[in-house]
Design a protein around this nucleic acid. Structure first.
Lengths: 250, 250
DNA sequence: GCGATCAGCGGCACG
DNA sequence: CGTGCCGTTGATCGC
């Protein structure tokens, strides 16, 4: 066990230094903000970061039980306990950790960089498709990418060989109800703007059965998007194929 | 710095014991699964939990750069590095952390409980409303709570004093486009099932301006939900009032 | 700052 | 197991 006043010094040093801090000890946690919560007494691990993020972890799941981001963290000794507070205004939120004891406290100097290079995101796939819209359908030409409307932002807008506007919504994973209604909303908006019928194509690796039903009722199209992730850093991802489900009939 | 073979022993001990493990050191991280990512060499903090959760943290933000949940974690010494792997099938995912060195390794015995008592969730508000639907509108009677359709699950279905079906969608925070289309979807489904017109009411503390426009176009109603969080453990939350925006005109 | 949307969403509850 | 959806969603990007 660590003396609480020593712990306090160490925490304050860590906060000033923008270190990463690990606190382990018996504590309870109160949160009042967008919701309220009480975490009863128990042994937890608290992770404080240089940017004022704080997370209380129990020994399960990746997500913390309690957390707060981008806040000013302070601590004080109160009645033989060490109280760590992470409060914030707008929205008003209070996070209070009360330690009965501190078993361990660790301070690590780690730079606050963000160097993760991720690929296979929707943005990547979008870029790939824009390079050659004919992958989706022969004769398709880009009109406007990520065009903003009053009712949202469509992923891709194009014009098909017959001069119809085509709204394309791209999903990197199985499409659901929300994906379908999203596309429908954009399609309606385009129809309103242009004053004529438009098409809507949902592009995803898969679609849930009921979502597919809704899609068809709304007069939208689904096209299976088959893409491959490349561990190679040079190319971000690779689109292996696109398959209109309707074509299966032939 | 810690000898890598000692670190390996300690990690393996921790995994068997289902402890919480903290590793700090220079490493790079490769992920291949639903997407791919590379995190170049740098000093990071890795948190491993008893249920096989693993998270790589940099010194900013609450969320880890890389993570994996519910996996079998193994480690081995390879060419003077310590490699921690968290692989999984279905879907196939590989997470590999390669440590050049380990500055610190900590092992904490913490029980894997989940005792957080949270209140003010949508579920709580739903329960409160169901106790007295007349808060929403005089004469409103419950028909079915959380009724399941082919196209989703409506929060509340009721009947108004004139015998119309009323579909109610509840949001604990500012309603957006998705909230509106969600309600619309349920309302249409009820109309289909019952074979007559239905009403739809969106209940939320606030609604985005454009979402409100869409809501009105779709013939739906909005009602401002004013609720209060109680730090008191006995009562979950309190609904202070409900206000139909239309009433503001009078 | 707000608005809109994605996320390797995670996690949960229900069928 | 999949389906649907909430979340103190968080985080990002654009305006």
């Amino acid at each position: 066990m660590i003396e609480l006043d020593n712990a306090k010094d160490e925490i304050e040093k860590g906060i000033i230094n923008q270190d990463m801090l690990i606190l382990v000890g018996n504590c309870f946690v109160d949160y009042l903000g967008r919701a309220t919560s009480k975490l009863p007494k128990g042994k937890r691990l608290v992770l404080i970061k240089g940017d004022g993020s704080i997370a209380i972890h129990q020994n399960r799941l990746v997500k913390p039980t309690n957390y707060r981001v981008n806040t000013r963290i302070g601590c004080e000794l109160v009645d033989g306990t060490l109280v760590v507070k992470a409060n914030k205004q707008k929205p008003a939120e209070k996070l209070t950790i009360t330690f009965q004891n501190i078993q361990d406290i660790k301070r690590y100097e780690i730079e606050a960089t963000n160097e993760l290079r991720l690929s296979g995101s929707e943005r990547d796939l979008n870029e790939l498709l824009m390079q050659d819209l004919s992958m989706i359908e022969a004769g398709l030409k880009p009109v406007n990418q990520q065009q903003q409307f009053r009712k949202g932002i469509a992923d891709i807008i194009a014009e098909d060989k017959d001069g119809n506007f085509v709204v394309i919504e791209l999903k990197r994973r199985q499409a659901d109800f929300a994906s379908v209604t999203q596309l429908h909303r954009y399609m309606k908006e385009v129809e309103n703007m242009k004053g004529k019928k438009a098409r809507g194509i949902l592009l995803a690796p898969d679609i849930r059965k009921n979502a597919r039903e809704l899609l068809e009722q709304l007069g939208l199209e689904f096209s299976k998007l088959d893409f491959e992730l490349t561990p190679n850093e040079k190319e971000k991802a690779k689109i292996k194929g696109l398959e209109h489900k309707q074509q299966k009939l032939f």
